[in-house]
Design a protein around this nucleic acid. Structure first.
Lengths: 145, 145
DNA sequence: CTTTACCTTTACGTAAACGTCAAGTACGCG
DNA sequence: CGCGTACTTGACGTTTACGTAAAGGTAAAG
């Protein structure tokens, strides 16, 4: 059930680009594109890329951000925010400000999704009603499966 | 408080492209682009476009779909679904199938948004904790505004 | 009748997010 | 050592979603 192979000491061995790409259902080109834009920075053993869990976590965040309709550049600023140093107070206050913005954005999206699901439900009801009527008029059985 | 001007008989007068564009916060180019892709089809008085409430409703759906990260082509199939004839039973069953797909998609997005908001909240807590500690170490006031 | 403010089509430009070769490199294996 | 497989770096192509400029039509105002 472990998704990543690990050695006897429990240290996870890194993944290749093909492995991460496959596991996330994207192409290696996509993964490298995200690296070009600075969204991930896998370790290098010589010329090969090594993806650790941290990288895979970030990739997950990226793809989720994409599903939510955020542009990659914005996604970069967000996940950079998450592991920023945030040492000094000014920095912390800036980060908190950004967080507020993101929250507003996400709450708008939440409303959008909820509204759409609701409307979809109403529409489905109408369809089912129509379907029931159609069944009644096309067959004379009236009530059945 | 009425958003659209109407005559004495209560019939709403149609809007110009500039009016709809402004009211939705997009450019006229955007509105015409959606028309090019077949997402809206305003009435024509001669060469001028006249936007009725139906068009504005659709535009609202389009923009919401965009906020949710759906591509315009997919949005078109969705809103076409909404005012499709759906007369025959085969058609109705097809429509219901499509609705199911949309619902799955939207529920995924709902989870995405909720998870992100939650993680954002946790992150914010950590930041606030850090901020409190920073305040303690930089000032000797301890507890204040 | 000209100006002005909108509106129209046509068409090329562009930024984002990759896809798709091409050509070379590195590694395990027989 | 050669072979195949996977990885690498360019670099150009493509799709989506418009931006933007050119060139002109139209309708009320002065």
């Amino acid at each position: 059930m472990t998704s990543a192979p690990s050695d006897a000491a429990g240290r996870e061995s890194p993944w290749s680009i093909a492995q991460v790409a496959d596991s996330f259902g994207v192409t290696h080109r996509t993964v490298r594109h995200y690296e070009d834009l600075g969204l991930i920075a896998p370790e290098r053993r010589g010329t090969q890329r090594l993806y650790h869990r941290r990288d895979r976590t970030r990739l997950g965040l990226i793809l989720r951000g994409k599903r939510l309709g955020f542009p990659l550049e914005e996604i970069r600023t967000i996940i950079d925010l998450f592991d920023a140093p945030r040492g000094r107070r000014t920095q912390l206050e800036y980060v908190l400000g950004q967080v507020e913005q993101r929250r507003h954005d996400l709450e708008q999206r939440l409303r959008d999704v909820q509204d759409t699901i609701e409307e979809l439900g109403e529409f489905e009801q109408r369809c089912r009603a129509d379907l029931a009527r159609a069944a009644l008029s096309s067959t004379s059985t009236g009530v059945n499966a």
